[in-house]
């Protein structure tokens, strides 16, 4: 564990909590892409199946359970509890355009053609593009609530910090995982446009 990975995990946790609290407190998921949240729930489900097979550390297990729990709670709030406030017309990105190619790529490019490894690879590739429906929705509505921009900021920051974590691990441990690094770069690059607007605008954003 290093400072970049720890702050990255905390930034990710902050993003997840911010979103969940925003929906819960305002009793509304206006401006939130339910499809991105479904994809994130799928990312965590396929990546954290090893919860059932191996124990790494209390921190690791606790964070995985929190991530999965919050992801499904968010999907539940959007599609069940506050369904009336879900803006389905603007959340029109076709998820299958992401899941199918990512599934195919995970079968072609991976470290090991085993069940858990393919699922892990699928989740890494999917996470890199899972935010697209949300960014697409904001570009369609032309605006985002301030709290949503904070959510996106911390979510984008987490993987950027992970890139520094991988530099750190390569330098000090001689370890690197090309699949995670390339996907992490793609994921972070997708936020660049948003980061620019977030930093220059500060308040509500129009992509």
């Amino acid at each position: 564990m290093n400072i970049f990975r720890l702050t990255g995990d905390l930034s990710h946790l902050a993003a997840i909590i911010i979103l969940l609290l925003k929906i819960w407190k305002t009793r509304s998921c206006a401006g939130i892409s339910g499809k991105s949240q479904i994809l994130f729930a799928l990312v965590f489900t396929t990546r954290y199946l090893d919860l059932l097979t191996s124990f790494i550390s209390l921190y690791n297990t606790t964070m995985k359970v929190i991530y999965i729990g919050c992801a499904y709670a968010t999907v539940y709030l959007i599609y069940m509890k506050f369904k009336a406030t879900y803006d389905g017309n603007h959340d029109s990105f076709r998820m299958e355009f992401l899941v199918v190619p990512v599934g195919g790529l995970a079968c072609l490019v991976n470290h090991d053609f085993s069940f858990l490894e393919i699922l892990w690879t699928f989740s890494i590739y999917l996470e890199s593009v899972a935010i697209l429906p949300q960014l697409f929705m904001i570009s369609k509505t032309g605006e985002a609530e301030t709290i949503t921009t904070h959510y996106l900021f911390f979510l984008g920051l987490y993987r950027a910090l992970y890139l520094f974590n991988w530099i750190w691990r390569f330098y000090f441990e001689g370890f690197f995982d090309m699949i995670a690094i390339v996907a992490g770069m793609v994921q972070t690059i997708l936020y660049c446009d948003f980061f620019y607007l977030y930093v220059t605008k500060g308040q509500g954003i129009s992509l």
Partner: peptide, 10 residues
Amino acid sequence: DDPSRNKDEL
């Protein structure tokens, strides 16, 4: 490389 090595990351 041993792919299981980085599974300590979230």
